[in-house]
Nucleic acid binder design. Structure first.
Length: 104
DNA sequence: TTCATGACCGTAG
DNA sequence: ACTACGGCCATGA
């Protein structure tokens, strides 16, 4: 059996560089279409280790909403290094960079 | 078991 | 464009 948390981690690690996913998308792919908050909570508590590319996760509006200033700056930088356009408001062009996981 | 928490989401003003 | 509010639900104490 795979816990929701494990699924989320697996899905996030499967996001290719240069692409982003929303919290809601990850939650839906993990089996909880309304579980976006769990994804955020999971990342908040697991981001320390686990080698997670958490910077590829943005909210449904393509906006970076992290409270922590250092983390927000790091996420913006990481995305730009991967070729993702991030404007000065911390917004990403979802239409062009959203990642659609393959169904199985 | 119940209770509180949260890097969200969608709708409304 | 912006803020405010309610609902959502897995996790940990």
């Amino acid at each position: 059996m795979q816990l929701f948390t494990e699924k989320v981690i697996h899905i996030i690690r499967a996001i290719p560089a240069g692409k982003v996913m929303t919290y809601g998308q990850v939650a839906a792919a993990a089996g909880s279409p309304r579980g976006a908050r769990q994804v955020s909570r999971i990342l908040h508590s697991m981001s320390r280790n686990h080698n997670l590319p958490w910077h590829r996760i943005v909210n449904a509006q393509g906006r970076i909403v992290i409270q922590d200033d250092e983390a927000r700056y790091a996420q913006t930088n990481s995305l730009r290094e991967e070729g993702v356009a991030v404007d000065r408001c911390g917004k990403v062009d979802l239409a062009g960079y959203r990642h659609f996981p393959e169904l199985k």
